[in-house]
Design a protein around this nucleic acid. Sequence first.
DNA 1: AGGTATTCACATGAAACTATTCTCTGAGTTAGG
DNA 2: TAACTCAGAGAATAGTTTCATGTGAATACCTGT
Length: 399
Amino acid sequence: MKIISFFENFLKRDSLFKEKNILSSSYTPEDIIFREEQIQEIANILAPALRLEKPSNVFIYGKTGTGKTLSVRHVLKSMLLLAEKNNLELKTIYLNCKLKRVVDTEYRLVAQLIKEFGEEVPPTGLPTDEVYSTFYELLDKKKILLLLVLDEIDQLTKKMGDDILYNLTRINAELHNSQVCLVGISNNLVFAENLDPRVKSSLSGEELIFPPYNALQIQDILRKRAEIAFKPGVLLPGVVEKCAAYAAREHGDARRAIDLLRVAGELAERGGKLKIEIAHLDEAEKKVESDKIICAVTDQPKQFQTVLYAILLLSPQKKNFFTGEIYDLYQELCKKIKLNVLTQRRISDILAELDMLGIINAKIISKGRYGRTREVCLSLEENILLKLKELLEKSLNLS
DNA sequence: AGGTATTCACATGAAACTATTCTCTGAGTTAGG
DNA sequence: TAACTCAGAGAATAGTTTCATGTGAATACCTGT
């Protein structure tokens, strides 16, 4: 019955939010501030599509949270609207290549494209070129102009090499009626540099760079959203400024700032407060960070978790340690929980991945006569470590 | 003392392998006419 | 004879293993003073 009174209490309490989804990452605002120039530029490049002429391929660079995706989607949306009104055979497809198990290989990319045309293709079993020809057939059935947006395209090539991109650029050569225009979005500013020159020239006909927002701009963006998202007077002065400062520190990532603000609001609400204080922001930052890590660790394979557990066990003893030590302890652990032991080669890769995820800090050092190795140390806060340890023990069935 | 050469303990890369999931094909089997 | 079944060949993928090669600097080993 306690739970009933909790819910009653919950209902009685006023929410701090007026419209929470304004602060969710999927929300697309009507007008995008500080990006007018870039939006206009994209529009200029893609405009020929409305006359069913193929625009040049575009490549868009910019760090995370600089509004690339938002701007492109905005342009596409209005083009689609116009196309519909004028009965134009214009189609747009937006794909995020980061999505695991959806668009992270060549096969799956094409399969996903086919899905966008309302057909299904088996998840495996067919040769890739057959899937390609199905796609061509589908696309070529009638004259269409396709705007294909590939977000985080660098992820795709990192895994599979740039053959994929080469194949994509060749699509138009295979088609008789339809035409495809590619829009690539990349977080990596030097992405095109180490690309096959043939691919590069045909892919990046036009290039566009999104600069990061500065703290003031982020402040404006936050204020604009907060105005609608929260009830009036909920935000204490200084919160938005602090939030923007946090984000500006992280290369002007607006998405992060908005996330932070939302989580701070949630925390304040959960704590029964009527105002959002600066302290909530600090708390929110910790929570966002820890959630990210916990989430990343949870869906890693057992072997991966075991390696992390080994590091966790080693960490109280000394500040930093080397690959060999981790491997030794890992082997023992594996024996204990009856897991087959992986090679040191593999562990080396796993350590590199852990480093990428920001869970550990690994630096390759040379100890001179005593070899070369990774110097690993944990870079997380105490309470995250405890949470992680608990999680791993549960997941690995350790006592 | 100063300069090279060694050497350690891994790092890093490429290719190949394994297990799993899934499709397609065609031979063999079955049931109905 | 058409429909059905089922084994076998072949793909894609994730996660590894195997083999080969690379590497930075603390030491060992010279050399000439």
